[in-house]
Design a protein around this nucleic acid. Sequence first.
DNA 1: TATGAATGAGTATTCATTCAT
DNA 2: TATGAATGAATACTCATTCAT
Lengths: 208, 208, 208, 208
Amino acid sequence: MPEAIEKPKKKAASEEKRRLILEAARRVFEREGLEGASLRSIAGEAGYTPAALYFHFDSREEIYAELLASSLESLKVFVDQSLKDGTTARERFEKAAFAFFDYYDKTPDDLALGLYLFRGGISPKSVGRDRNKELNAALSTCLEPIAEAALSLGATDKQAKDMKARVFAHATGVLLLSHTGRIRMFECTAPQMMRDYITEQLTLQKWN
Amino acid sequence: MPEAIEKPKKKAASEEKRRLILEAARRVFEREGLEGASLRSIAGEAGYTPAALYFHFDSREEIYAELLASSLESLKVFVDQSLKDGTTARERFEKAAFAFFDYYDKTPDDLALGLYLFRGGISPKSVGRDRNKELNAALSTCLEPIAEAALSLGATDKQAKDMKARVFAHATGVLLLSHTGRIRMFECTAPQMMRDYITEQLTLQKWN
Amino acid sequence: MPEAIEKPKKKAASEEKRRLILEAARRVFEREGLEGASLRSIAGEAGYTPAALYFHFDSREEIYAELLASSLESLKVFVDQSLKDGTTARERFEKAAFAFFDYYDKTPDDLALGLYLFRGGISPKSVGRDRNKELNAALSTCLEPIAEAALSLGATDKQAKDMKARVFAHATGVLLLSHTGRIRMFECTAPQMMRDYITEQLTLQKWN
Amino acid sequence: MPEAIEKPKKKAASEEKRRLILEAARRVFEREGLEGASLRSIAGEAGYTPAALYFHFDSREEIYAELLASSLESLKVFVDQSLKDGTTARERFEKAAFAFFDYYDKTPDDLALGLYLFRGGISPKSVGRDRNKELNAALSTCLEPIAEAALSLGATDKQAKDMKARVFAHATGVLLLSHTGRIRMFECTAPQMMRDYITEQLTLQKWN
DNA sequence: TATGAATGAGTATTCATTCAT
DNA sequence: TATGAATGAATACTCATTCAT
């Protein structure tokens, strides 16, 4: 039954190619930004013809979506690693919140990608509800350690959930400010702003 | 003296046409998003040939810039009006901060415009450093009442300035969360998040 | 009879404006070359609206044609002046021939203009047969001193006429070579080539 | 082994299409002159969409450059063939010089092409220095037989090189005169002018 | 699975020209 | 005489996508 053997092989080979294309896409994205990350450039970088990519992805937007998914994976890894030395709940809270910010501060391309796709960038038709949910879930997972730490610190479920939203919002706002260069207007730095916010939240919450 | 009358007439007519084009641009922007707001579409919406727009504007980016400028003007008006009933410094702080958020919450297209243009959207070469500075200044003006109120509440100059940045960042982050629909993930509402943040800041600051 | 007085006045004023426009055109031409000498630029340089030029000229090409005509006038002046010290026929021949070359060598814009218009640049419909004849005649006049000198040197009418054509052709060729930078290929200089040609012609002709 | 056969087939088909496009370009060029030879017109003439041409050529200017290159090739063939019966050095000189002129006299479109592209027509950035050098070299090759014949006749290296420049210049000038119709002014014919020049050079040069 | 070829719609901008005022 | 406004056609070039092979 050669078929039974070949199929998985084929599948694995296909997955590998997808991966290589995505890596190429990321390189283009880093090098030329969102505007320059056309299907053509990605194909070129990957050593393919544009047409070839359509065997691996349904559309340009699907590539973007996968890119975002893998970015969220990296974020997850980054957040988890930053937590591994944390002992107290307070420390875990600080680390989890700051890591989320820090990841995007250090990899502005992932930020651009995220911002683009979180805005109208991804059309629902091409990405679909399911994928959208997946992305939301992945994001939520990355923020989860924040909630967990909050819970450990005595927050209610609702309070912990809110905290995820707050940290996400503030981090996003600060990153936007920083990424666009407008932060200079205010004569302060992004990491400091984020640290201040985290400290505030810790000193503030009644459950603290 | 017909000439004396005609000239202002002409000028007024011209201004009016500019306005109509900008309104058309705004409609396209609202309907099709930034990517769809090409010069062609704007011209079409305004009932003009693309070439005709060049009589009224130097480039597509100038149209965008004017759109943003007028948006910032509206924001200014909105913030100022929200302040007119405020008596105590605390009230003024609350109103100024919330108004900034509220304006964009209610006119999400202005938010999209602002986000795009504050990112690399406006190329320095075409709009020019001057215009960029103007826009920065206009934005800063809108946030100024926040700093003023903070000063009244006893903040130092530096603290007041920081406060502008914080409110701007948090508002922006919350708006992004809300505007992209991700806020549902967290089961909370944007206005509530913003109110909470404002309250926090008031209870928190030592100068309070 | 105010009309009798006004008309010439008006005409004179009109001519003056034409002249000013042509001067502007020449400046643009010198500054930005042929490609840049659009009706718009010319109008701008002259302090007019593009539409205004149509009161003074029928088309863009007519402006070019007038420019060429005035260039030929300058050439005429230049050639005549170069002759004023010449005493012998031989000297006159040398000076007339070299001056023709020299004028264009020193004012490459006039060369570009001439080359453009002498090629298909000017459409017959807009310039018309008459104007074409005028330009031809003007050119011929500039070359006439060459023929005259040849006659003085003993050439027949036919020989003298031929000489005009030869000098014109050689000068044009050398100028083209020089003007395009290709002359470097041959490691020689345009004036030297022209001088050599003139000397050749003098030593060669039987009537010499 | 179908693959081994197919690849050359494909390549050949591609080359063929390039050729067809170039032919179309040449036709447009002949019919409408350089100004009319836009990418659109060429594409239209070739039965293609403008975008399709970009698969075969990198830019409009590359098409022009190839056109010129192939024109120079034809010229080379023409010159070489005209030499094949020449026995004496004198004959070879006459034939080489006249053939250069004759080619352009008979194919005025190649002349227009050459004149345009030898002027600023080809922008260095798009065609590149290399191509420019290639074209220069190709032209030089076409003129080389003139120098060789001069050497055989006893000219020094320098004299032979100069001779190339002279013949090129004179031929170009005569062709321009002829091509623009101005030659009628002088009541002579282009071939006769060229023949006269060649004869002159032969009788004149001291090394003759 | 991949390619070469092609499309059609799109991009911003420039142009000479016209015309009502 | 001159302008402001507008046009329509043109420019080269890019894009995501499709399809026969």
